[in-house]
Design a protein around this nucleic acid. Structure first.
Lengths: 419, 419
DNA sequence: AAAATAAATTTACTGTCTGAAGTAAATAAT
DNA sequence: ATTATTTACTTCAGACAGTAAATTTATTTT
């Protein structure tokens, strides 16, 4: 009946290539040129005949498109190292992405520190840097200076120039309109409705794409993590706040008007706990790190010394050494985590939910079968069980997701029709 | 700041044409043939030059496509009755759908009664019929017999034969997989995983399309109701149960695996009220008709005599004549309705939510600004307020929605490429 | 009647992709 | 060794969807 399970894995799945692995055919009417490029990138190295079969297109088209992509310097023929020589017939010629055909930068802007990476066209990280940030709520001009500094530093490390960068992707906490590149609101900015993408584009002369942190984490999963082999999955992020991202048909779903998926502020109790947004009964108010720390401060002797991370670690240690109050806090949070998962399943029906975040490291969630528990709270327990995976990330995931944003845009650009 | 408002209107908006009115261009890569057809149908009567401007395509293409559609008997040139003769230049020639170019049937299957309509290609109802049903949980063969009887009756009334019907759309309560045409579970059926569409297709020789009741109500809004002018909106249905439908970019959103949007069974309270699904804390358990009736039975002297509708009417009368218990019941339900709306806004961010259902007739919701109330429970109150509209439907809406399902499929068929 | 204007049509052309025929390079059978 | 078979890849004519520009048509204004 129920086949749900929880797994804990790390970014980087050891598979060849990067980017989502599209199932045969592909639903959307992307140009064949782009489809072929993405198929090669997704699979690492494939022969023309494989591409034709996988995408259900004619062999002639593949030849023509491959020739164009080779001429453009985007892909190349390679010696396939692990080819079976036992089959007869003309041996296939493997195609692979030319890694240094273009480069992109991915940037994550956060309260405490900014991180940035520089990758080639298959997402290999060539350089990375981290700058600490302190002043919250600064004017735009200050943040832009920080970004430029970050980029300059990164380029110096990589030994490259700005004009060698095809696109810059930026992830920032807050409300971001991806289509217009504006930040409606952010904890980092003292101003509202900032046209951040446009401004940086003007400063750098490079196309800039921007999205919120939940979406870039989701993109990181789609491009480099557990979502690669799934066309439909959700990501639930539990850190300082609670967020989510959704991938439908290998594409990021951003809600009807680009501002949805605020899972942390869906109401799970009328007149419930007070949330930092000022309202009551938000899921976040029962589950996010800051909510647990608030509880810990009143129930235990954990006063607010040290960082959030530090406090969470102490709370976790107390729980593991048998402190009943600490255990109760984590148990209650787990209940609400499961409730959140169940509501995601009920509304979006994904095949996989990746629970991503910092405090799941401290929680003793390994002992709980989250998938089975969430399943108990959903309708029709006998069909379509949803897999739940835990994913404790490292600090680079945000920047990697931002680089995926840039990679995706650069891919569109280089594989567009009638170049 | 907040510009939300609640309005009460009825199906049938008095506008020309039917079907969603697509904004210029159109996002998807539908064939121009289909785009032109849908534009003509959506606007009632338009000249070729208008089409070219509206869809941003060349005039030559419109000429060619219009010629094909005219040759196929799908559209025709008409005398535009209200044309302004004051403009100089060659007068435009209006194009319009040929109403009897094809016909479809829409069927709604429910616990108490089935209804069916027969419409032409612009959705005009040419015949309707209603059969009462009683036995719940019957075998598939019985239900199919009922459907065949319904169709036979309908065709007799319309004076038409089965081979004149291009498609049949069916709406049924339960869990329906639209893509495969199977009913995973339904209160009407004693069996599970029934390939209903295929079986009826075999019996009638006509293409059959099937979806659940929430989706066909949403389709009814998209094709004939308040959603026609909105590309993105949600429908929340409150009747015996609580459901929802979502339209994104003029298309029905069915969740990642076709089984999402079960708003009624999202949890809004841990360990809360017992729902008919057997779990606790479902939104439905606080809001659906059956939940209110259960409360009424214990708090008032309203024993379960008569139909659900009858009981709701008596509860409503008690509330309006000042009974505090009845008023409290409605007030509590309204709170949860608003909570449901807020969660929809938070997750999907639609521009419009249509609240559709029977008991909103009895509730004194007219006095509440639902949009404003829901807005108070959502993040970022100053931007993107969501409009909330009440829509008390009549009994035919379900069948109309089912006919839209058929109309949509027939349109695809007749306007497909290389006929 | 001539000029102006707008709608619709025709024509030549482009880009994308397919399908069929042909070529290339390997193994298996004789 | 030679031939057959198999599979991979290439070439090329053509279908098809669509555009852009020139042309024809129908009407009003001057």
């Amino acid at each position: 009946m129920s086949e749900s399970k929880s797994t804990l894995y790390d970014v980087g799945d050891g598979m060849a290539g990067c980017g989502p692995i599209f199932p045969e055919g592909g639903f959307e009417k992307n140009s064949l040129r782009k489809q072929v490029f993405e198929h090669v990138r997704g699979n690492g190295s494939v022969a023309r005949s494989d591409i034709a079969r996988a995408l259900s297109i004619s062999a002639g088209s593949v030849t023509g498109i491959a020739a164009e992509l080779i001429a453009a310097g985007l892909i190349q023929e390679i010696e396939d190292p692990d080819r079976e020589i036992t089959v007869r017939g003309r041996p296939p010629v493997a195609l692979a992405i030319v890694p240094d055909s273009f480069h992109v930068i991915g940037i994550h802007l956060a309260n405490e520190r900014h991180s940035a990476i520089l990758t080639d066209s298959i997402g290999t990280v060539l350089a990375e840097t981290t700058h600490s940030a302190c002043a919250p709520k600064r004017p735009v001009s200050d943040l832009i200076d920080e970004i430029i500094l970050l980029v300059t530093d990164l380029l110096k490390i990589a030994g490259m120039a700005l004009n060698q960068i095809s696109a810059i992707g930026i992830g920032i906490a807050g409300l971001v309109d991806h289509t217009t590149g504006t930040v409606a609101w952010s904890p980092l900015l003292s101003e509202a409705n900032v046209k951040l993408a446009g401004t940086i584009e003007a400063r750098t002369g490079t196309p800039v794409f921007i999205d919120n942190d939940a979406n870039i984490v989701t993109l990181a999963e789609l491009w480099f993590g557990g979502g690669r082999t799934n066309s439909n999955f959700a990501v639930m992020t539990v850190e300082h706040g609670v967020g989510m991202g959704l991938v439908l048909n290998n594409r990021l779903f951003r809600g009807a008007r680009g501002m949805g998926l605020e899972l942390g502020h869906t109401k799970v109790q009328i007149g419930g706990a007070l949330c930092r947004c000022g309202q009551r009964g938000c899921l976040e108010a029962y589950l996010a790190d800051y909510a647990l720390i608030k509880e810990a401060a009143s129930a235990l002797d954990l006063t607010a010394i040290g960082t959030e991370k530090n406090t969470m670690e102490r709370l976790s240690a107390a729980s593991k050494s048998g402190d009943p109050a600490a255990q109760a806090i984590f148990e209650n949070a787990a209940k609400y985590l499961i409730l959140g998962l169940a509501n995601i399943v009920q509304l979006f029906d994904p095949g996989l939910i990746i629970v991503s975040g910092g405090h799941i490291r401290y929680d003793n969630l390994d002992n709980i079968d989250l998938g089975a528990e969430a399943h108990k709270l959903t309708l029709n327990s006998n069909i379509n069980a949803c897999e739940v995976a835990l994913h404790a990330w490292d600090g680079l995931v945000w920047a990697r997701g931002a680089s995926a944003l840039a990679l995706s845009a650069a891919t569109d650009y280089f594989t567009r029709e009638s170049r």
